[in-house]
Design a protein around this nucleic acid. Structure first.
Lengths: 225, 225
DNA sequence: AAAAAATATTACAAAATTATTAAACGCTAA
DNA sequence: TTAGCGTTTAATAATTTTGTAATATTTTTT
């Protein structure tokens, strides 16, 4: 059901290529940042990314050196997909293909890149430990736990998913239809009244924060910061 | 249920091709605009379109760059179908039809284009982050919220839909009949007096902006910028 | 300018939607 | 199997929205 937002960093000195990759990955629903050199990439807060696409041959520092630096100095453990121009460079990759890494040869099809990205992310599960919060109400995505004042709130799965969905979309109304769509499995057929019931239970469990969930006839529910 | 006529923008520097596409798409009942360059396309109010057909290879800005600009700067989320010349495009474009977008290779049959258009629109349902505004009165389409000075106005669904309709058609009169048609469900039978009542309530809620809604005997209502 | 028609506004009633509670159901682990 | 939890259904209460009607106002017609 609810899938974390995944952030990808694309590093390549060919701006056009960056753009194409960015555009297509974003079309797939990923959040994408770009850097046009290894140096620029290293300046970023790399910990917020779930995957890095890294060109090997770049002006300035090479992709290899960059990857090495990331791993050693920045303590980055997320998977890296290398983009190499020629197959002769592949040799250099030997021994680098640790853990979740992968490589793609130019010229490549966008379809291929996306397939690789998905594959790597699938086996990865290195999703960053994102937290969504409102005041002292916090949701820890990776742990799938909600806290108030640091204390765990005992929510059922449905309650949790609904809260998460609403907090992710803070400030917009989410229709009952959409909630059903995203929180319930596709095959089960339940009425929208179920959403109400779960909202009621959820409100009760989160105490005063229950007032942050506004319901409005004809719109659905909205989590108000 | 406001359901707009579908508008398509065709962007190609070959005028003949634009015309052919326009003619055929219009035959299918779509409303079609054309632009003969990326630059020209970007000048348009892109938010009013439901789909863009975009040639990749054009003099001046490329279709890719244009698409990127649309997405980033103009906050356009509607689907784009790329048109690529057969062999002049490099392999990078292969597999562009992965995400919400699609691509078509020249030369193409009109039949094919129409099929693609229909397919894309079908799966579409893109919640565009469109905003319609008049001074400090704003409507956020995706959030289904209206604001004045950044504060949410508490509108009922009917009020919201009417305001939206009038603001979408800023400057033209919208008949009571049309309002009933678009805002009310097809099966309910209510009198046109209902429109008046809802307009009155709406006017009151939007304060001074209420004066922007002009009613004229025999015409209906008009939202004046 | 007066009469007629159309529209605007208001208040109230009806209808629809939503919130809450309780009970039944169904799955899972002891 | 049963106890326990989570989920769904169902019933009812509370709220919100919508429609109607009555009245006032404006616009158009005569």
């Amino acid at each position: 059901m609810i899938e974390d937002d995944i952030k990808i960093l694309v590093v390549d000195d060919e701006k056009d290529l960056c753009e194409i990759l960015q555009f297509n990955l974003e079309s797939e629903g990923y959040e994408v940042d770009t850097a046009n050199s290894a140096e620029e990439a290293l300046k970023k807060n790399l910990h917020e990314y779930d995957l890095i696409l890294l060109d090997v041959m770049m002006g300035g520092m090479s992709g290899f050196k960059a990857a090495d630096t990331m791993r050693k100095q920045k303590q980055i453990e997320i998977p890296i997909i290398f983009i190499t121009a020629k197959s002769s460079e592949n040799d250099l990759l030997t021994g680098f293909n640790v853990g979740g890494d992968d490589y793609i040869q130019k010229p490549f099809s966008v379809k291929e890149v996306i397939a690789r990205v998905k594959a790597v992310l699938k086996r990865g599960k290195h999703t960053s430990t994102e937290k969504i919060s409102c005041d002292t109400l916090e949701i820890d995505l990776s742990r799938k736990l909600a806290y108030i004042d640091g204390r765990i709130i005992d929510l059922t799965r449905k309650e949790f998913d609904i809260l998460l969905l609403l907090m992710k979309k803070k400030g917009s109304y989410v229709s009952r239809e959409e909630i059903l769509d995203r929180v319930w499995d596709d095959d089960v057929v339940v009425t929208e009244r179920n959403v109400d019931v779960n909202i009621a239970r959820l409100r009760k469990k989160i105490g005063e924060y229950g007032n942050h969930i506004k319901g409005k006839t004809g719109y659905g529910y909205l989590f108000e910061e």
